[in-house]
Computed example of a mutant assay.
Amino acid sequence: MEILLEENGSKGAATAQEDGKRAGMMTYSIAGTGLIIIDHTEVEPAYNGKGVGKQMLYKIVDMARAKNIKIIPLCPFAASLFKKLEDIQDVLKT
C-alpha cells in the first residue's frame, strides 16, 4: 500500500493506492499556517477493514509533525481514531 500526499492551494489529500488502483482518500483543508482540518475519509469497498483509513491518517499525522501543524478532525472517522490512538494525540488541536 502506497500513501501519497498532495496539496493544491488550501486543500490537501492523502491517497492510498495499491497496484495502481485507488484504495482510499482522506481530504483536509489548510486553515492557516499551523492548522489543518481533516474533513472527509473514503475507502473503496474492496479495501474495507484493511486499515487503509488508519494508514492515511498516520501519513497526515507524520506530515503535521514535520511541519509543526495541529489537526482538527471534523471527519467522524478521523475523530474516532484520534480518540482511540494515544500515539497521535500530540498533533490534535485542543
Rank of each mutant, 00 (worst) to 15 (best):
E44Y: 03
H40I: 07
L4V: 15
D62C: 07
Q55N: 11
G53M: 04
G9K: 12
A14V: 06
E42C: 08
M63R: 09
Y28S: 04
G24P: 00
K21M: 05
L5I: 04
E2Y: 08
E44P: 03
I30H: 10
Y47S: 02
H40G: 07
H40M: 11
G20R: 12
S10V: 11
D19S: 13
H40T: 04
A46I: 09
T33S: 10
N8D: 12
M25Q: 15
L57R: 06
G9L: 12
A46W: 02
K54N: 14
N8R: 06
G20Q: 13
D62K: 07
T15N: 07
I3N: 01
Y47R: 02
A64H: 03
A23M: 15
A14C: 06
I3K: 01
L35N: 07
T27R: 01
G12M: 06
E18V: 05
N8K: 13
A16T: 01
D19A: 14
I37L: 14
T33G: 12
Q55L: 08
Y58E: 10
E18I: 08
T15A: 05
E44A: 15
I30W: 09
A64L: 07
T27I: 05
H40S: 11
G34C: 07
M25L: 13
T15C: 05
R65V: 07
G53I: 02
